[in-house]
Simulated scan of single mutants.
Amino acid sequence: MSDDRLRLVVFDVDGTLVDSQADILGAMTLAFEAEGLAPPDRASVLSHVGLSLEVMMPLLAPQAGVTTHRRLVDGYKDAYVALRAAQGAAQSSPLYPGARDALDRLRARDEVLLGVATGKSRRGLDKLIEGHGLEGYFITQQVSDFHPSKPHPAMLETALSETGIDAPDAVMIGDTSFDMEMAASAGITGIGVGWGYHPAERLASATHLIADFTALVPLLEEIWKEET
């Protein structure tokens, strides 16, 4: 970049940085079976990844009541923790190819700040960061415990506030329509990824689309070059 303006690069987690679908699907199955309910199919679950669990469960189990939805949320969380503990976060939710290199390249730049905005809980994100040795990478970390569910822009608005970055100097990278709609609502450039849980046709709100992590840094360079 030719200027010295700070830039903020915010990542979604599940389906963007890590492939956690095995644990997501396994935990969902266990939670539903514990309530005597038929588990939702894979496509239905993955289509809702990115939403907070409190929003997701009524969509996956519309026939159930509020109390059951709450038990499903708690059951999912407990099952997810147990499944992850059995293998370790790095094995159960591996980084996508090229993710670590892209993070390292961006982190090495003094003018770039990194963040995450995820439907994960604080506990879940902490375990994932620890499992992959990513402590110190993300200066701002927005989780579902403290915000309305995506696509509400609260996570990104808080990330901007915490870092002092203006919306035009930030990007949001994610794999779902919820990520891209959240970015658009916050006035942030949305970069949709082609390896996650939503197909490209659902990422209509994205400003850019990339097919793999090797394209990310060159795209950011181009975006920032055009802004100067």
Rank of each mutant, 00 (worst) to 15 (best):
D126N: 14
G190F: 06
D169A: 15
F32S: 06
V116A: 11
R202E: 12
P153F: 11
A64G: 00
Q87D: 12
A204E: 05
V81Y: 13
P58Y: 00
L60W: 00
K225N: 04
M172L: 12
R202S: 03
G98K: 02
D104F: 05
P62L: 03
I139H: 15
H132E: 11
K77S: 14
A89R: 11
A204F: 09
D4Q: 15
I210N: 05
E201Y: 04
L113H: 12
K150R: 06
L103H: 04
L114C: 12
L220D: 04
R42I: 03
F138E: 13
S144I: 05
M56V: 00
D14C: 04
H152S: 10
L134Y: 08
H208D: 04
V116L: 13
V217Q: 13
S161Y: 12
V55I: 06
Q142C: 13
L60C: 03
F178G: 03
D78F: 12
V10W: 06
V112K: 06
P148T: 05
G36N: 08
G187K: 11
S92N: 03
G131W: 07
L59H: 00
F11Q: 08
E181V: 09
E135L: 11
A102L: 05
G133D: 02
F178K: 03
V217G: 10
I223A: 08
E162M: 12
H208G: 01
I188G: 09
P97K: 02
E35N: 02
V116H: 07
G75V: 07
G98L: 10
M28T: 15
E221C: 02
A184Q: 14
L128K: 04
T118L: 04
S44F: 00
H132M: 08
L156T: 10
F11T: 03
L125T: 04
S121G: 10
H48T: 04
P199K: 04
S2A: 14
V112W: 11
R107S: 10
F32T: 08
P40D: 02
F178E: 01
I173P: 06
P39N: 10
A215I: 09
P58M: 00
F213L: 13
R107A: 13
T189S: 11
G36W: 06
D19V: 01
A61C: 10
T176H: 00
G15A: 01
E181N: 03
L51N: 00
A186H: 13
Y96Q: 01
H208C: 07
A82W: 07
